[in-house]
Design a protein around this nucleic acid. Structure first.
Length: 586
RNA sequence: GCCCUCGUAGCGCAAUUGGACAGCGCAUCGGACUUCUAAUCCGGCGGUUGUGAGUUCGAGUCUCACCGGGGGCGCCA
């Protein structure tokens, strides 16, 4: 956006530096880091340091200051610039606010919901996230994964990638069998209640595990049940299929509530069989070692690679021949790349699986897949309870997703009810839901992926301060002004000669949105967007209290209306990347 | 034992990837609603960035060593 100006200015700076005996200098430009006025800046420290290294006896800081002063004194700026200044070795060049602000606002109103996005770049990326087990409940730990995966997908899409949102469901294994056995013996004929199907399924799971653990007889019965399932006992398979669907339906409902969708569902059951063939291949190629029946099928990566205690040993198949996660993850990766010709495959999985995924990617490389190094683990830390208590359904230390959402909606509803008593109940509920879900999502996304989230009800349901409702409210205020103006946004491109400081800060922030999107995409960090959206809302609230819009005169009013519309759009776009919606009223 | 990760104000978190004076929110204290919605705004208080070295003109950020929390290391997922 500013390249043209940079070149233009460098053409002036180079001769000045040449006069100082400095040639072939390249300057690194950046946006001036604090708001107030916008502009670009560069420093002379590197140049001074170079001089010092070449033998001259100079004080680097002093020399940088001297050079900055010199250049600032000699620069001749065009009318698109306001002024330039030298500050402690830096030179700051400020743009003329009028034309710049006009340019930014025009751009937003022109591009609308696409503002901040980048054109398609031909890169296809798959993001695998959520990965729930059927026949189990969802808790807040799972939510962090979903919310992160969904947001990263949105951000990558905005960056111009073609994104395939994939889910990988654990629909087989001991946990499923345990559930089925318990159901058939103790809950025959029951069906999940429509309202809270996941909780019901989860409760049965907890009960099933308890039964399995409390008697050896039960454990044996379950093992026999597993055998029967493995031998395709038609009754058990039918029950498996039916109950699995209950879970899938319930998940679909939850994803809808969360506003998350998937382009492709993978199932463990669809890759298990082919996975065993891959294990055979690995044994044949003498990469894997078959220690059965005494041991398992393993692949000693350190031995193969000559590393020491780095890749360790990966178990591919149990000694009894049944499959493990690794058995299935290998064919799954192949399937993904085959189906979609991926350029990149991202796994949103918690940090505890870092070594495991590193192993899987290495095995794929050893199998000769050239794309193996384009698999990427997006690791995030877990959600804990206070006192470093791990969330675990079997310990009872768990916060169920449905409970959390219900409670958050209840609290939001109280406020909505109080503030907007005239609305009908459906509308109130809709608004409360957006606020509740927004708060929950925001609180999970607004800390770095590498930081543990300690869940407590107080913080999770706090809607004050740096939280989604603050940002949503800013957009609602903007909307309120626009509504009172009859949604008539003037076309005039004139902006007033003198802009208020608050307006300048606001325009400045809006102009930074695209680069924040880029950064969030590069680092796979929604945190960048949560911070940005908050700063933007703050700047708008500041503008709101200081700059009247509707009562302002002609051109000021027009410009401010356009600015308000542009702000609303930018808030919508940024919260959209986080999967957070904005009500019209709140 | 090896590896990963975190440590910033009483608490919860940021910091443009090595740049300007380390910012914000809770909490706390004090102000502002006959005004486009106060779920808002303004001000005060609060810091040796775990410790110690090193690299650099410049370090919260990079290197090394310690200290402390969490996690992972062959048949769990």
């Amino acid at each position: 956006m500013f390249d043209r100006y940079k070149i233009q200015i460098e053409e002036q700076i180079n001769p000045i530096l040449k006069g100082e005996g400095l040639e072939h200098i390249s300057l690194a430009w950046s946006l001036i880091p604090f708001s107030g006025h916008w502009g670009i800046s560069t420093s002379f420290f590197q140049i001074a340091a170079q001089e010092a290294r070449s033998g001259k006896k100079i004080n680097v800081a002093q020399r940088a200051t001297e050079l900055a002063d010199l250049v600032a004194g000699k620069l001749i700026l065009g009318r698109e610039f306001e002024r330039c200044e030298a500050v402690r070795g830096y030179i700051n060049i400020y743009f003329e606010p009028k034309s710049f602000s006009q340019m930014v606002v025009d751009k937003v109103l022109d591009e609308k919901q696409l503002f901040g996005s980048f054109p398609s770049n031909d890169e296809t990326v798959m993001v695998e996230f959520s990965q729930p087990n059927t026949h189990k409940a969802f808790h807040v730990g799972h939510l962090r994964n979903i919310v992160l995966g969904a947001s990263v997908s949105n951000i990558l899409e905005f960056n111009g990638n073609t994104v395939i949102r994939a889910n990988y469901l654990g629909d087989i294994g001991l946990h499923v069998i345990t559930w089925l056995w318990n159901y058939e013996n103790f809950h025959q004929g029951e069906t999940p209640p429509a309202e809270n199907a996941i909780s019901w399924i989860g409760e049965l799971y907890a009960e099933a595990v308890k039964r399995r653990e409390e008697s050896e007889q039960n454990e044996e019965a379950i093992r026999r049940y597993f055998q029967a399932w493995d031998n395709h006992d038609p009754e058990i398979v039918a029950l498996w299929e039916e109950t699995r669907q209950w879970s899938l339906d319930a998940f679909a409902q939850l994803y809808e509530t969360l506003g998350v969708h998937f382009d492709r569902l993978y199932f463990e059951s669809e890759v298990e069989h082919v996975g065993k063939a891959f294990v055979e291949e690995l044994i044949e190629k003498e990469l894997a070692v078959d220690e059965r029946p005494q041991g398992a099928v393993i692949i000693d990566l350190d031995a193969l690679l000559g590393t020491k205690e780095e890749y360790r040993v990966l178990v591919l198949l149990r000694s009894d021949g049944t499959s493990l996660y690794a058995t299935k993850d290998i064919p799954l990766a192949v399937k993904k790349f085959d189906e979609y010709k991926l350029d990149r495959s991202i796994y949103v999985v918690d940090v505890r699986q870092s070594l495991y995924l590193k192993q899987i990617f290495k095995v794929l490389e050893l199998l000769g897949y050239e794309w193996a190094n384009r698999c990427q683990h997006l690791a995030y830390e877990i959600v804990n309870l206070p006192g470093n208590v791990t969330l675990a359904s079997r310990e009872g230390t768990v916060v169920l997703l449905e409970d959390l959402i219900r409670e958050a909606e209840k609290r939001a509803m109280e406020i909505v009810d109080h503030k907007n008593p005239e609305l009908n109940i459906e509308e109130k509920q809709r608004i409360a839901s957006m606020i509740a879900l927004g708060s929950i999502k925001y609180s999970l996304l607004s800390r770095d992926n590498t930081k543990i989230v300690t869940f407590d009800w107080e913080t999770a349901l706090d809607v004050n301060g740096q939280a989604a409702p603050y940002i949503q409210y800013a957009a609602v205020r903007a909307n309120s002004i626009l509504r009172k103006a009859g949604y008539q946004i003037p076309d005039e491109l004139h902006s007033p000669d003198d802009l208020e400081e608050k307006e300048i800060i606001l325009v400045d922030l809006i102009s930074r949105f695209p680069q924040e999107v880029e950064k969030a995409g590069r680092d796979l960090k929604p945190l960048v967007i949560t911070s940005y959206a908050y700063d933007l809302a703050k700047a708008f609230n500041d503008f709101y209290t200081n700059c009247p819009v509707l009562s302002a005169k002609d051109e000021v009013r027009s410009f401010r209306l356009r600015l308000v519309a542009a702000t609303k759009q930018t808030i919508i776009n940024s919260l959209g990347l986080l999967g957070i919606q904005i009500p019209e009223i709140m």
